Simulated assay, not measured.
Amino acid sequence: MPIKLDDPNALEQLTEKLSKRRQLQEMMKEVNAVIRSSKSDDAKIDFIMKKCGKSREEARNFLHPSESWCDPGFAAWELANNNQEIGRLRKRIQEVERYREAAARAEKEGNSEFPFDGGRIVDNVPANRLQIFFDRKPDADVRTRLKQNGFRWAPNSGAWQSYRHGYTLDWAKREFNAEAIQ
């Protein structure tokens, strides 16, 4: 299940995932280094068993794969994919930190509003929503364009809303010729 920005435990969950991925990366690098070393096969198998939690047979198959096209140890793509996931998690942690700062700022200063002829756009940071309030029900063409751009009617708030994204705010401001309240 994805970790949402507004989840109160998001930072802890992402940090834990990042820690596990870093440990996995180090383990894979250590195992590959031992496999390439000049140690005996028994020493390599014992190390793989200890590091990876594999049985003796699994470790032997890992060291000497039965398929001719497989190299022993972890493949380069496994290391690369894990490293990319580490980078993605770092960026996601930065996103969560920026969101929390913006939410705290919005709690103090209020949400940004962008009025337009017939309504207003509200960047509701604490709720992690971009909301569009209309003075009256928009026509079918406007409702269709809202839906095509990720907005849904939310009766509980009386607004058309979407998750906060820079592109949805930009689209809404362009679509309705909205300007920021000074």
Rank of each mutant, 00 (worst) to 15 (best):
E95P: 02
L130K: 01
L146P: 08
F74R: 02
R98H: 05
C70M: 07
E109T: 15
W69Y: 14
A80L: 10
G158W: 09
A10S: 08
Q182S: 15
C70W: 03
I121H: 00
M49W: 04
R22M: 11
E107S: 05
P155N: 12
L89N: 01
E175C: 13
L169G: 00
E85Q: 12
R129L: 06
D41I: 02
N82Y: 01
D41S: 00
L63K: 05
K44W: 03
M28L: 05
K29S: 11
M1V: 10
A33I: 02
S112Q: 13
D42V: 14
N81W: 11
N128G: 05
Q84L: 11
E85M: 08
A59Y: 01
W153V: 10
V122A: 00
A103G: 02
S55H: 06
Q131M: 10
L63N: 06
G158F: 10
K147F: 07
E78V: 00
F134M: 07
C52G: 01
K147P: 01
A178W: 05
D7V: 04
R100D: 10
K137M: 13
I3W: 12
K50Y: 13
A104R: 12
E26Y: 06
A103W: 02
W153I: 09
R92G: 06
R88Q: 13
I86V: 14
D135K: 06
F47T: 09
N156C: 03
Y163C: 00
A10V: 06
R143V: 15
A159D: 04
R92M: 07
R136A: 13
G150C: 09
Q148S: 08
R36D: 15
R105L: 11
H165R: 15
R105D: 14
W153E: 08
D7M: 04
V142L: 07
R21Y: 15
E16D: 13
E95M: 10
K51H: 06
P126T: 04
F133Y: 14
V125P: 02
R36S: 15
E109Y: 11
F47V: 10
R21G: 13
E57I: 05
S66F: 09
Q161A: 05
F62M: 06
Y99V: 03
L14Q: 01
L18F: 10
M27R: 13
E97I: 12
Q94W: 11
N32S: 02
E67R: 14
R92S: 07
V142Q: 01
E175P: 09
R92D: 03
F116D: 02
F74H: 06
A178Q: 06
L79W: 06
E67D: 13
T168K: 09
F133H: 12
Y163D: 14
R174Q: 13
P65W: 00
L146K: 12
V122I: 03
L89E: 02
R164L: 15
M28C: 02
K91C: 11
I93K: 09
G158V: 10
I48M: 00
R90F: 06
E107R: 08
A59D: 00
E175S: 12
S38P: 06
A178T: 04
R174L: 08
L146G: 08
V125Q: 03
K29Q: 12
N61R: 12
N9V: 04
K147M: 10
Q13I: 10
W171P: 07
I35T: 07
E175H: 11
K17Q: 15
I86W: 04
S55I: 08
T168W: 07
A154V: 07
D71Q: 08
L24A: 10
N32L: 05
R36E: 15
G158S: 10
D141E: 09
L63A: 05
L11Q: 11
A76D: 14
